[in-house]
């Protein structure tokens, strides 16, 4: 297997001089074609920044990002992004949102071919009955499925998902997890999933990488998930391998959390005052 995307010593900082905050530091990461990698971390650690770098929406301050061995140059339709807050255009219908993507990537298609393609992807996420509805009229889960359909419709080789399911209720989440896995298997995509849910990572990914807490966030060690697919939620809880891995990852995350709290020099010191009770 060859590396599809590589990040070498990637740093990202905002601001200049004294105001400079390094969000990510020395990120080294490789993902192979067809692989499903989950990056887990606490909120506010720079996960979205990381996915924006991979998508090409942000440029690294230093270091390099290679896609198929070549330096990454801005966003591309080869890497579809599924944003955390769906980012659907509210003035377009479900079909319209997908169509906008299809139209820009395949301008040579006729209106009818385009329509067929749009229907195919909307059908893939089981939303064909809602194709003429506007995002406002859809539930959170349905909106995220539209977002998935839009990302898939441009036929990317890689899918970058930024906490796609974190805003959904547990049941909808499980349904969508299965749907995403099915698409991954059938369409043979390479997937990077950002999540704050270790279980979700273990259930879906081939490999889990924790992200340390920023500023200066770095990637932690790789945890290979050597569980046979399809992984069934029911059997998981009693699976010994699953339990061990889960404990390891959670233990690691807790450790870095403690470390960051003791290391935090900027922690606000509360003044030593007491309310006047007399």
């Amino acid at each position: 297997m060859s590396a599809l995307l590589e990040m070498k010593n990637v740093c990202l900082a905002y601001g200049e001089g004294n105001d400079k905050t390094e969000v990510l530091k020395d990120i080294n990461f490789t993902i192979n074609e067809g692989e499903f990698v989950a990056i887990v971390g606490f909120s506010g650690t720079g996960k979205t920044t990381l996915i924006n770098l991979m998508a090409g929406l942000l440029e690294p301050t230093s270091g390099e990002i290679l896609y198929k061995g070549k330096a990454l140059n801005g966003p591309s339709s080869e890497r579809g992004v599924i944003f955390q807050n769906y980012s659907l255009l509210p003035w377009l219908t479900v079909g319209g949102n997908v169509n906008l993507a299809v139209k820009t990537i395949f301008p040579e298609l006729t209106a009818k071919e385009r329509r067929n393609l749009v229907e195919k992807y909307v059908d893939m996420v089981n939303l064909l009955p809602a194709i003429d509805k506007r995002p406002k009229e859809l539930s959170g889960g349905m909106r995220q499925r539209v977002s998935v359909a839009r990302a898939l419709s441009v036929n990317p080789s890689m899918l970058l998902m930024d906490e796609p399911l974190s805003a959904l209720d547990a049941l909808t989440r499980a349904v969508l997890q299965d749907q995403i896995l099915e698409i991954w298997k059938e369409e043979k995509k390479t997937v990077v999933l950002i999540t704050n849910d270790v279980d979700e990572g273990i259930l879906m990914a081939d490999r889990i990488i924790p992200l340390k807490i920023g500023p200066n966030a770095q990637l932690g060690p790789n945890y290979q998930v050597e569980l046979a697919r399809p992984r069934l939620r029911k059997g998981m809880n009693s699976d010994q391998k699953y339990k061990t891995l889960r404990n390891e990852v959670i233990h690691y995350l807790n450790k870095i959390k403690e470390q960051s709290e003791t290391l935090d020099e900027n922690k606000m010191v509360l003044p030593d005052v007491m309310p006047i009770t007399a």
Partner: peptide, 15 residues
Amino acid sequence: DYMNVAKVLKLNWFD
């Protein structure tokens, strides 16, 4: 978010 969508889809200036 909308601008990010535009960038990812590589919409031209007019679109």
